[in-house]
Design a protein around this nucleic acid. Sequence first.
DNA 1: AATAAAATATGACAATTGTCATATTTTGAA
DNA 2: TTCAAAATATGACAATTGTCATATTTTATT
Lengths: 246, 246
Amino acid sequence: MSKLPKKSSILPAVERSNPGLPAGLNQIPLLQILSAQDRLKVLGEMTETRYGKGEYIFREGDPTEYFHIVKEGSVKCVKSSLDGKECTLKVLMPGDLFCCDAATFDGAYHPGTAQPMGDVSVLRMKKEAYFKMLRANPDAAMEVIRYLGNRLNEAQEKAKVLALDRADQRLAALLVSLAERSGVQESNGIRVTVRLTRQDMANLVGVTTETAIRIMARFKKERLVSGTAARLVIRDLPKLKILAST
Amino acid sequence: MSKLPKKSSILPAVERSNPGLPAGLNQIPLLQILSAQDRLKVLGEMTETRYGKGEYIFREGDPTEYFHIVKEGSVKCVKSSLDGKECTLKVLMPGDLFCCDAATFDGAYHPGTAQPMGDVSVLRMKKEAYFKMLRANPDAAMEVIRYLGNRLNEAQEKAKVLALDRADQRLAALLVSLAERSGVQESNGIRVTVRLTRQDMANLVGVTTETAIRIMARFKKERLVSGTAARLVIRDLPKLKILAST
DNA sequence: AATAAAATATGACAATTGTCATATTTTGAA
DNA sequence: TTCAAAATATGACAATTGTCATATTTTATT
């Protein structure tokens, strides 16, 4: 299991075994698909764990013992190069399956690190129990196939963008997707609820922090966005969309 | 279905319905997993199609009617940007599943283009029949989940490399994987059997053709490789491995 | 409220990679 | 074999992005 790199904030990683069907579970497609009976059985095999900022859910190289589902909050999947540079592959949201990112795969070790972004709650289940459940439930297996197909598609789209688009286009595309995936309409634009620093954005689009800061400063000057991590507002979504594909 | 952009070479796209269990099918993991009876049934629902250079198996935007398996030869999966730049996501080999690259996913249209590299043979099956088969065969469904998990993992590794590594490192990594995946030992090094032009390499690692040519010229001068597409030889695999991660 | 840590900001410069032009060589089809 | 097309090669230059240094502002914790 992963060590904590520094003292945990607010919420220590408390484990509560099988909390009696708490709310929030109905947002998880994979569980919805199961019959009431199977769902109960599966929940009996799952553990809920909470993590706070600075902790790790698992790290690159850890053995893959568990299958995971995000219940609350967001989780980022990260890979590092030997010289310490980091790249964020994906921000997982509630309902997302992961086991670092290849939700299921036959490697014995995690190919990446999973970190909470703020306070999160994660469900997990032994890999063996998960496989057994899939074998016994064709609907669940089909749902996982569908999910993985979509994730693969998404990962390949990301590779394409990294290969072909400029930094400012990639950043604009990120802002568009943030607005669409986690934005709430406000008087002056769309506020992004996921809290991302410029460094987080840099890691998501494959540039240095300085480059992300400079491009965001330009976007701010052009009135496309305003604010930073705590309060990022998309002010001109249409122009960002155009920029992303220009 | 896709149009031919120019006259086909040698082999026109001939369709042969259910060829009586030809050799080569035993290399396909997904089919091996089925019982003899189910395999026969599935083969009865599959069609074999041959394609030659310059043809398309399907194109970005085509409706996704079929599920595909590579039987012979290699197939490349390509995505394009609006301004005509191309990026090759993956070279599929015999046994690989595809439906452009998200072997199964719930999009109605192909997110990328599949092109033969030389002469290839592809098996295909209606999507509905494929889903039905998976539902009825937990082993097959688990194999597809395993396969997709690995593909996702691979795609994310590719994204990481594109985000963090320099062009020469990415090219060195490509050469290493070519040597390992399709190399044959010869007196003066490892010959790569997949025929890739400098432009193909450029598209695989996300650089321009000129950059790929220049870097390959440098590698040649440093005696790491020799020859071009028709006869590419890896002369110093260890040094390329070091370069790929430096 | 005070303070340390983290995040944002900006300049100067270097390294990497792309663009465009043009020439030569190799390959494949008639 | 011949010839056109494709692939390889190379130079000059521009654009993009990274690196390093340093300053300021914001955020979170005591």
